[in-house]
Amino acid sequence: MISTDPQLIKNIVSNGERLDGRGMYDYRKITIEKGAVATADGSARVKLGNTEVICGVKFSVGEPFSDTPDEGVLMVAAEFVPLASPEFESGPPGEEAVEASRVVDRAIRESKVIDFKKLCITPGEKVWMVFVDIDVLDNDGNLIDAASLAAIAALFDAKLPGLKEDGKIDYDNKSDQGLQINGIPLSTTFAKVGDSIIADPDLSEAEAVDARLTVGTFDKDGDVLLCSMQKGGSVGLTVEELEKIIDLAISKGKELRKMVANA
């Protein structure tokens, strides 16, 4: 694989420019295609520049957790399959895939936009389990944001399956009942390269990135709130840099939410 010299990237970024001509806080072009997988109960394919991920939502009926007997269960998993990059290896999810799925999960869960009590079938016995599986098809960097867009778009696309009289899922009949989702939680990722902050780092920039901060935001009654944060990378951020990124995440979140709403 041809890689770009990290020092070159650092030099370009320090001049307030980016290799692909984007502005410092610009995202790459985003396309969201809902209903991309016929077999899933909800799905979305997202392109973020040349990064491409696909997300499928499947429902099943299962037992609730003992501490939340009247709530449905959400599970987010991500696979960084070797198809998507020469760097990815087969086998169980590595730490980056685990982190990505947990960060995406956290933003959706903590925002409380989904009322899991509505996904209870029989308290203490049967609830809807919502499986959100993210497959990376092409890795050109910033998989967390791409996965986050795909996951929430797929959840909006999802329709609950019908239930047979014996309580089992009727795979032949989908209901037209979607999930009730009150807001759009999204992850937005910013990176520190030298002394500069950039949005949506792509793969050519990844090697030059010192630190990363992913901020989960969502909209509630016209306000924008934060619901999750995750720092990455092996260099620290100053408090001032953190505050700057929080502000940027709030304004970028607004832009990205419009795309999900219109998808």
Binding site: K112, D223, L225, L226, G236
Partner: peptide, 14 residues
């Protein structure tokens, strides 16, 4: 003066 770990979950204003 570097924050080397930061995570958050839960709803807050800016």
């Amino acid at each position: 003066k570097h924050v080397t770990l930061l995570q958050m979950d839960g709803i807050v204003t800016r």
